[in-house]
Simulated assay, not measured.
Amino acid sequence: MLAPEITAWASRARALRADLALDGATEWPERRELARRLSDALALALEFTAPARGDVSVDEFTIAGGSGQLRARRYRPAGRTGTAMPTQLWCHGGGFVAGTIDEILGDRLTADRARDANLQIVSLEYRLAPEHPYPAAVDDVVAALADLRARADELDVDADRLGVGGNSAGALVAATAALRERDGGRPLRHQALEVPPATLRDVGESSRRYAIGFGLDDAWEVAALYRGAAPVSEVSPLDHSDHRDVAPALLLVAQFDPLRDGALAYADALCAVGVATEVRLGAGHVHASPGLTAGFDRARRWQSTFAAELALAYRTT
């Protein structure tokens, strides 16, 4: 039985989706804009996502991507300008084909996380499928990490405490980039994977039990647009041939998520080769409910746990 806060949010989302005629849009720019409007309308509803609590400095700059400059938005605790800070490069969610650093939901949650973890977070506007299939997004993250290292003094980055993180599709991009960084001999401090699709194939009971009606009904259709012509083993961290020496990992997993068992299998694979790995299972959560911080106590606990784990990982407490 889903919590009433989740069912109320899902009902509102369905109504707004119909009002926006999102399912009738055929061009990707229009679909992305309508998806952002849907997300923003839900976030602004007082009973769903709480506003950021403040005490955070936010600015924007451009950063190197895999094929040109990209937008980035930086969040850091107020008063920390001019001080080298542990830094996380963050990849937003959106199902590989949508999402943006301008989305109100992500903006609010990221600001609070930077404040609570005492961490500098740089949110990246990476390229999206289907116009830019794999490896474009991963190339963007790898190039942005290199730019953060190169501009560490300018951007107040502690290059010895540089990591990655992401939500949903962004978590897969971040995890793949962490493997690339390992292969290139560029160690990362940490990787934080929130409701990650650790593989682009079905894994375990959760992939069947929660496939329909839990928020990810078309997951593999959009994942195929991201994958392009690449084999699953290349784009899926779980199916990578070697997990040794990748960055320490935090996986936040929702109980009623079709991606749950794949994420838990990835955690097991990391642990099996000695990678320090923390798993936090969100009881009662579906894939998107950790953002319901205005009226859902379990979402507030999820976000608090996330920030606390980051503070430990980056040693900011």
Results as ranks from 00 to 15, higher is better:
residue 16 L to N: 09
residue 168 S to K: 10
residue 79 G to W: 06
residue 278 E to P: 05
residue 237 P to Y: 14
residue 216 L to C: 09
residue 63 I to W: 08
residue 42 L to K: 05
residue 48 F to L: 08
residue 194 E to S: 02
residue 130 P to H: 10
residue 90 W to V: 00
residue 56 V to C: 12
residue 120 Q to S: 12
residue 259 L to V: 00
residue 253 V to K: 08
residue 181 E to A: 13
residue 232 V to C: 01
residue 235 V to W: 12
residue 67 S to T: 08
residue 11 S to Y: 11
residue 302 W to S: 04
residue 2 L to G: 04
residue 96 F to I: 00
residue 259 L to I: 01
residue 95 G to N: 07
residue 29 P to G: 08
residue 2 L to Q: 03
residue 294 A to Q: 06
residue 135 P to R: 14
residue 279 V to R: 15
residue 271 C to W: 15
residue 109 L to S: 04
residue 16 L to F: 10
residue 6 I to E: 02
residue 231 P to D: 05
residue 4 P to N: 06
residue 71 R to Y: 07
residue 173 V to R: 05
residue 179 L to D: 00
residue 166 G to F: 03
residue 292 L to R: 12
residue 271 C to L: 15
residue 182 R to K: 13
residue 30 E to F: 01
residue 177 A to V: 00
residue 188 L to V: 01
residue 224 A to L: 12
residue 293 T to Q: 08
residue 312 L to N: 03
residue 281 L to W: 03
residue 208 R to H: 15
residue 236 S to K: 03
residue 12 R to H: 11
residue 278 E to Y: 10
residue 302 W to M: 08
residue 69 Q to L: 13
residue 154 E to P: 00
residue 243 H to S: 08
residue 8 A to T: 12
residue 127 R to K: 09
residue 81 T to A: 14
residue 213 G to H: 08
residue 283 A to T: 01
residue 94 G to R: 08
residue 295 G to D: 11
residue 93 G to A: 04
residue 269 A to K: 10
residue 123 S to V: 03
residue 160 D to C: 02
residue 274 G to A: 11
residue 272 A to F: 10
residue 198 A to G: 08
residue 140 D to W: 13
residue 193 L to R: 07
residue 296 F to V: 00
residue 310 L to F: 11
residue 10 A to H: 04
residue 122 V to N: 07
residue 288 A to H: 06
residue 181 E to Q: 13
residue 17 R to K: 13
residue 289 S to E: 06
residue 64 A to L: 14
residue 276 A to Q: 14
residue 264 L to R: 04
residue 220 W to F: 15
residue 185 G to Y: 13
residue 228 G to K: 05
residue 296 F to T: 01
residue 59 D to T: 11
residue 107 D to T: 01
residue 280 R to S: 07
residue 283 A to C: 00
residue 305 T to R: 11
residue 191 Q to D: 06
residue 208 R to C: 06
residue 225 L to C: 05
residue 119 L to G: 11
residue 135 P to W: 10
residue 264 L to V: 01
residue 25 A to L: 15
